[in-house]
């Protein structure tokens, strides 16, 4: 990891110095072992504090919206899933891609601090380093080593796009994924449940929601000036803690990212009460792939999104040839 960190600091210094960019968006290491927080730096000597480790999970592309409003040229470090989100933001005209310089970071997968805590390794833990498949935990008592990716986030385990799809500079060589991703196992598992069980499962999950809207705020696609749920005048939904309101919010949020969601899993990660929101988005992605062809909601900016277009001979589940019908 250090090789890339050094490479990252060099490129940041160089582009800031030669004025190619005015500001750099990256991560800095906090005092805790799991805390690599996003940071905006414009001072050359701050570039030395930039870091690339197994906890740079935050997607920096959404910060571009506010930063670009300051008419600056911005250099940003983007992982694979972050670059997908970047493309979506360009499609939505939320960012002006000319004024952005992208440093691509092929991502080996991020470590989930919860899993480290469950494994009881967090006592006295100072630093975690990962090189290739080897993970090294440096604690006060000593050093522990593990092989494999058992500590990775679930979303990283079946990651579809580890290598950035768009970048000016690539900071390390591409990462290859061997295990062919199974076809939405989590979604099919829920689909198999009987209807009432599904209803109870989701109502229980939704009832945990405290309407903090963290999922909306982190999502690169939910970038509306004023979200319809914040706009009281729209009269669409209220913050009351009633089942119907929770269901309303979650169904509509999932529907609003339909055909655009890049499956980066950030909504589930940041949800304080742990609602499996990505299962809603992935259900829609699975349906769209089956019905309207595999849309990789990322690569081709020119292609119009699935819900923004139609085909005359689309699958028509409502065309029962009832008596009196034309056909």
């Amino acid at each position: 990891m250090d090789k890339t960190t050094v490479r990252m600091q060099q490129i940041a210094l160089q582009t800031l110095a030669n004025g190619e960019v005015d500001v750099i968006l990256g991560w800095k290491k906090g005092d805790e072992w799991y805390d690599s927080y996003p940071v905006v730096i414009n001072d050359i000597n701050e570039t030395a504090e930039l870091i690339w480790d197994a906890f740079c999970v935050n997607n920096l592309s959404k910060y571009l919206i506010t930063e670009l409003k300051k008419n600056l040229r911005i250099g940003v470090f983007l992982k694979g899933c972050d670059s997908l989100a970047f493309n979506q933001l360009v499609i939505d005209n939320r960012i002006d891609s000319e004024r952005v310089v992208i440093f691509g970071l092929p991502c080996p997968g991020m470590i989930d601090p919860q899993k480290v805590k469950h494994a009881g390794l967090n006592k006295g833990l100072l630093k975690v380093e990962r090189t290739g498949d080897k993970i090294v935990f440096i604690t006060k008592e000593g050093v522990k080593e593990y092989i494999g990716r058992s500590f990775d986030y679930d979303k990283c385990l079946n990651c579809r796009c580890p290598n950035p799809v768009v970048s000016k500079y690539m900071l390390s060589d591409a990462v290859t994924r061997t295990d062919e991703e199974q076809y939405f196992p989590d979604v099919t598992e829920i689909e198999k449940m009987p209807l009432e069980a599904r209803y109870d499962y989701w109502t229980k999950q939704f009832s945990k929601c405290i309407k903090c809207y963290a999922c909306r705020n982190i999502c690169p696609l939910c970038s509306c000036e004023t979200c319809v749920f914040d706009n009281i005048a729209a009269g669409v939904s209220s913050k009351a803690d009633a089942d119907c309101e929770q269901q309303f919010f979650h169904i509509i949020r999932a529907y609003h990212v339909a055909g655009r969601c890049v499956d980066c899993g950030e909504c589930s990660r940041v949800c304080p009460v742990g609602i499996p929101l990505e299962k809603l988005n992935r259900k829609i992605i699975k349906d769209i792939n089956q019905l309207y062809g595999d849309y990789t909601a990322d690569t081709d900016i020119a292609k119009s999104p699935p819900l923004g277009t139609y085909k005359v001979d689309d699958f028509d589940p409502f065309d029962g040839s009832k008596q009196g019908g034309k056909k």
Binding site: K69, I91, D92, N93, R94, S223, C224, E225, T226, N231, S304, P305, L307, G308, T309
Partner: peptide, 28 residues
């Protein structure tokens, strides 16, 4: 115009191409 964030997904589906993009100068 206050609510509109310029994603123009309305423009893509209008059967009569009745919607166009318009530039606004904003100052924050």
């Amino acid at each position: 115009e206050d609510l509109c964030n310029g994603c123009l997904s309305c423009l893509k589906i209008c059967p009569y191409d009745a919607i166009a993009a318009k530039e606004l100068a904003t100052n924050n």
